[in-house]
């Protein structure tokens, strides 16, 4: 899983088309609240959308590993609730306990999509907010730098890697700016 993202061949694009089309059709079905007659328009639209999305895709995306995805969904649900509670009590408390800092975190996962996904996930989890994504580090704004932020981020990164079916080397480096 550590190869750099390469350009995608036409054959590969074609191979992805059916799955994409089924996904688009499912979205149409949900958005129209299971309105069967509307499928007359929905099926061509879903096919066109799938074709367009496959044709415009710049690079090969990493595939999603299903058991990892389920683990990730559970992890994300629990932690986004914790993140909301955390920031809510900081905002409502009589003395706001804030100790903001910028932390540099060296990335271990490869591929542009997993990295963007990781950066966006960080923003939804307790006390962290990604503010810059460079070649091999992500810059994170943390609300409370007294917490073990780097260890938390390493845990999140392992979950994201699990979602894409990748293994990570043990973590080292990173720190408060």
């Amino acid at each position: 899983m550590s190869e750099t993202p390469t350009t995608i061949t036409p054959r590969e694009r074609l191979r992805r088309l059916p799955g994409r089309a089924v996904g688009m059709l499912l979205v149409w079905f949900v958005v129209t609240e299971a309105d069967i007659p509307s499928l007359v328009i929905g099926v061509p639209i879903a096919l066109a959308a799938a074709t367009l999305s496959v044709a415009l895709q710049p690079r090969s995306l990493s595939g999603v590993y299903l058991p990892g995805a389920i683990r990730f969904a559970r992890f994300f649900a629990v932690n986004s609730v914790l993140g909301g509670i955390d920031v809510a009590f900081r905002a409502l408390g009589p003395r706001m306990r804030l100790a903001p800092a910028i932390v540099h975190y060296p990335l271990r996962i490869s591929g542009s999509f997993p990295r963007v996904f990781f950066a966006n996930t960080i923003s939804m989890l307790p006390g962290t907010l990604s503010s810059r994504l460079t070649d091999d580090t992500v810059e994170v704004h943390v609300l409370d730098c007294t917490r073990p932020v780097i260890e938390d981020l390493a845990k999140v990164e392992e979950r994201v890697a699990d979602l894409f079916g990748a293994q990570l080397s043990p973590h080292e480096g990173g720190g408060v700016l």
Partner: peptide, 20 residues
């Protein structure tokens, strides 16, 4: 309203409101 700068306000905005 209460947080001191742009970044901390973004924290409040993304997490709390999406959870709500």
């Amino acid at each position: 309203v209460r947080f001191p700068d742009v970044y901390t306000r973004l924290h409040a905005l993304t997490k709390s409101d999406n959870l709500g």
